[in-house]
Design a protein around this nucleic acid. Structure first.
Lengths: 162, 162
DNA sequence: GGGTCCACTGATCATTTTGACTAAAATCTA
DNA sequence: TAGATTTTAGTCAAAATGATCAGTGGACCC
């Protein structure tokens, strides 16, 4: 029940860290930089790509670069019986970048991005119109204090097991 | 004031979409697949890499693959005068994947990941101990309804301007 | 209209890298 | 310890790379 996700090992982590800056460095460079055989790195990279441990590459694109300078969290309450309908509806809205179900009072918490406050309002409307959604509350993000990062966690792991 | 972020153009978008599955496909394949000259794609990729429009590659790694199967949002209230101190403290905690300042009642909203509920508790403690932080409230994520995605937004843009 | 800037093309070049494949270590792990 | 799995180091031909170049077309300015 813990998870069926592929678990990175020490070598994976080292490779990924080395890949952090430029994901397109030649395998040979990686190999010699890490002191591994080329074949090893090659195999690992392939395995990683098929492991399901990575998001699609587009996840790296900052919404701002797509002209979406405004972000917000939208919490939604819904008619629980129509959960799946609601989710299907939300999935149709490109501006909904993410959606999670948190413990507690709100049923769904969405991350949304828009071109400007006006556009944000439009998106909120669209969300509100999803079947099963009874109420939403939008809270704009004023500042990105720590932009999403995983590097630190990866580094910590590297130190961990040794 | 809108932003000084590099704005992707149509070609960038097409390249990024083509790169979505495998970010390491040879430039030549990309070029012929997109009907562009090799030099063009090569130049674009270089520009993209330096544009600041992309997160580091490690952002693609799912926390679950690092043994962090538990995620949560932590909202924190703080002594506004010590904001910077607090941020500095939070930055030190690898499990804090992200931190934003939302409009509204909560001062900071953190995204946190942990190995298990126990570990989550430990991380919460650590957050609470950051200088300037007066109160926190943790809400575990029960389900990832829509995992973070940007692809749909990118696709939308592609259609937009034509 | 003429000039300048810029991005894209299509071509070349020598040098690397790739993928696929060995057989021989080395390393787990039961 | 024996068996299974990884890793290594080596091969090969085919392909991709980075760095050029001159030529083309568009957008902009005076």
């Amino acid at each position: 029940m813990t998870s069926d996700t592929y678990q990175l090992d020490e070598t994976d982590r080292r490779i990924l860290l080395a890949l952090d800056a430029d994901p397109r460095v030649p395998i040979m460079m990686l190999a010699q930089q890490l002191g591994l055989a080329r074949g090893t790195v090659q195999t690992r990279l392939e395995r990683l790509a098929n492991s399901g441990a990575l998001r699609p590459n587009t996840a790296r694109i900052l919404p701002a670069a797509m002209g979406r300078g405004v972000s917000a969290f939208v919490s939604a309450e819904l008619d629980q019986a129509r959960l799946n309908e609601a989710i299907a509806g939300l999935r149709q809205i490109p501006e909904v970048l993410e959606c999670v179900a948190p413990a507690g009072d709100t049923d769904l918490l969405l991350r949304v991005s828009a071109t400007d406050p006006d556009d944000l309002y439009r998106v909120s409307e669209e969300i509100r119109l999803c079947p099963g959604i009874t109420r939403t509350s939008t809270s704009m993000i004023l500042r990105d204090v720590i932009p999403y990062r995983t590097t630190e966690l990866l580094k910590k792991l590297s130190g961990d097991k040794h």
